[in-house]
Computed example of a mutant assay.
Amino acid sequence: MRHDNLDTFLKTADTTLAKGPVALIFVEDDVEIGSTVRHHLDCGFKTLLVLMPEAFGLPDDVADKVERINFDVVRGDDCFDAVNRVSAAAPGLWLYYCYNAEYLFYPFCETRTVGELLTFHTEERRDAMLCYVVDLYAGNLEAHPNAVSLEDAHLDKSGYYALARNDPDNHNYPKERQLDFFGGLRWRYEEHIPAKRRKIDRIALFKSKPELTLRDDHTFSDEEYNTYACPWHHNLTAAIVSFRTAKALKSNPGSTFDIETFKWHNSTRFEWHSRQLLDLGLMEPGQWF
């Protein structure tokens, strides 16, 4: 169904958002819209909200399977505001958000649905899941000048690290079970990335509740939502493989001419399988087998 804007859609929230998990896909340009929607439909989300400019088109095979909402990003925090508004309208549901040309992977996603994943996570008394945004890029930029190619996708197999997340409200002591994660293109080309945008961690899967607020650094007002594990053992984590940074670096006049290729000695072809991400340590199964 097509909706004129988010306000119009939220008037139907009682029925449209009756069951979760719900995915929000924000469309920033016309790159890989169809593949992004198909991938998340295959994950098993009960409802997909595709927030996109009116001028862009949706492929016919997915147009009738999603809730299309006319949406233009005017300010940098418009997407975060939209997530918060949907969250407020659907308390108690698991929500997920991403952008076009981003693809959610979680342990054993080839045989298990996202609903099964979140059922297990809920049983572990967790209301949010840490996701790592893993940069993808085309291996041949001459053939793919926008840096996007599903068939020629590559990622960095090493170069990821974490730093303590200091708490300015507590004498800058490290926050408990919270870390800032870095790596990928945002690390290798950090001179072109604002410092605030260099982290690759995103709490992209979370259970909505009253007064919960998503902040513009992809963390939440409830600090427990921002933790990578519970106090008693390791928890599941997921990965969002994303062409978003590569697209931005190649479309920005300030960086595009400095980059002839994204490939380096630690590049490897992406296999589009959760096993590769598990083997590289880019997500963890926790206690889920």
Rank of each mutant, 00 (worst) to 15 (best):
N170S: 10
N170D: 15
A164M: 07
D7S: 13
F80S: 14
A88H: 10
M283T: 00
E151P: 00
V31N: 08
G139C: 08
K209G: 08
F243D: 02
N100R: 07
F243P: 05
L93K: 14
A13N: 12
D167L: 05
D279R: 12
V74H: 11
V73G: 04
D258V: 06
L104T: 03
Y189N: 04
P210Y: 02
D78R: 09
D72R: 11
H171D: 15
Y96K: 03
K11Y: 04
L93N: 04
D42R: 15
N5T: 02
I193W: 08
F9V: 03
R85L: 11
L117T: 02
V241K: 06
M283Y: 00
F257T: 07
H233G: 09
L179D: 07
D180C: 11
R112H: 15
E67A: 09
V74Q: 09
N235C: 15
F80H: 08
I240Y: 00
L205D: 02
E28D: 11
P231S: 06
L117K: 10
A63N: 12
E176P: 01
Y189T: 10
T113E: 02
E284Y: 08
V66T: 05
G20C: 06
E260L: 11
F26L: 06
F206Q: 09
H144Q: 14
F45W: 03
N235G: 12
Q178M: 12
L249C: 01
V31K: 11
E224D: 14
P231Y: 01
T119Y: 14
E116Y: 11
G183K: 02
W264P: 04
C131A: 12
A18Q: 14
Q287N: 15
R126W: 04
K65E: 02
A143L: 13
P210R: 14
R275T: 04
F56Q: 14
G183I: 03
D29T: 10
E67G: 04
R188K: 10
I200Y: 00
G115K: 13
C109L: 06
G115P: 03
V83E: 01
S267G: 03
W264G: 15
Y103Q: 12
G57C: 07
V62Q: 13
F270E: 00
L41M: 07
